[in-house]
């Protein structure tokens, strides 16, 4: 049972308005049957300091990742997680989080790997809810366990692995990291610790579009016209392109994946979650340093 789509006229401009809800829509539907609200933050204690009434926490680090392999949970793991949060295959899952929904987008992308049909983001996320003076509570709901089927993860459509990125070379890539990471001046985010990439720079031909450019000051998504100016006019994407986005570990690029896929309507967008912490350590993959996107070296970007 799905909840109604937010008919906010501001969302009609996007390719998939059903993927966004406003803070007002959420306030109006809190407690509705079939709705599960999840908070996904970078700071995992933030939820406990106060959250939207009825919301549950989802922890990207301990709940969505496999603990041993660098991978996401499998079908059984995901089913168990959903069940524990009272989510059925029919639930409308609404995600929100800190930092312009950076980690909420990441969670939404993982839900999509499992083909969860109705999963949406709260436009503006946690910060907008708070800025509007809406209610926060600290009581943690205890949902009744629900029945969620074991669905195998489908990594073929929206996820790219390193060999697939190599095969993709010659088609558009978007590097969503900061300019300092793109140029190779540093291998990690400003103000973040070194995370163990041996080489700095970017994948040849990748366009640099730092992820946060898609968000307005209040954390909401920019208008379609503004987004088209950034991704089409500046980064050079055209309708129908196959695109791969990457960052450091695949979280910031989930935000860009959401923008390209759901707001601008690109149908073939993949997130390379290995991202720079894999590429920057891999042997003999091409890297370009500096501000220019660079050329593909001989032997890459054609059938080998």
């Amino acid at each position: 049972m799905s909840l109604p789509v937010d008919s906010n006229p501001a969302y009609a401009q996007y390719a998939h308005p059903e993927r966004l809800v406003s803070t007002q829509w959420l306030a109006d539907h809190l407690g509705a049957e079939g709705l599960v609200v999840l908070e996904s933050d970078e700071d995992i204690l933030l939820y406990n300091t106060g959250h939207i009434p009825g919301a549950l926490k989802i922890d990207w680090h301990t709940e969505l990742n496999d603990e041993v392999t660098r991978d996401y949970v499998d079908g059984e793991g995901f089913a168990a997680l959903m069940s524990a949060k009272g989510i059925t295959r029919e639930s409308t899952v609404v995600l929100y989080g800190d930092k312009s929904n950076w980690w909420a987008s990441y969670a939404l992308w993982v839900f999509t790997l499992f083909g969860h049909r109705d999963v949406r983001l709260v436009d503006g996320g946690r910060d907008k809810w708070i800025a509007e003076g809406r209610e926060l509570v600290t009581s943690i709901p205890v949902p009744a366990a629900a029945d969620y089927p074991v669905i195998e993860r489908d990594d073929s459509k929206i996820r790219a692995f390193l060999p697939e990125v190599l095969d993709h070379l010659g088609k558009p890539l978007i590097d969503v990291r900061s300019l300092e990471e793109y140029t190779g001046e540093r291998t990690h985010m400003p103000a973040y610790p070194e995370e163990g990439a041996l080489r700095g720079g970017h994948i040849p031909t990748a366009a640099s579009v730092p992820w946060a450019r898609a968000a307005a000051e209040d954390g909401t998504f920019r208008s379609r016209t503004e987004l088209e100016r950034i991704y089409l006019d500046e980064a050079g994407l055209s309708a129908g392109d196959e695109v791969i986005a990457y960052c450091r570990i695949g979280e910031r690029s989930s935000h860009t994946w959401f923008v390209l896929q759901h707001l601008l309507g690109f149908e073939n967008v993949r997130n390379y979650d290995g991202s720079w912490t894999e590429w920057g350590n891999a042997v003999r993959v091409p890297i370009v340093k500096g501000e220019a996107a660079g050329e593909l070296p001989t032997g890459f970007g054609e059938r080998r």
Partner: peptide, 9 residues
């Protein structure tokens, strides 16, 4: 800042 409870902790 209070929005950074882990760091504050």
């Amino acid at each position: 800042p209070p929005e950074a409870p882990t760091t504050r902790g």
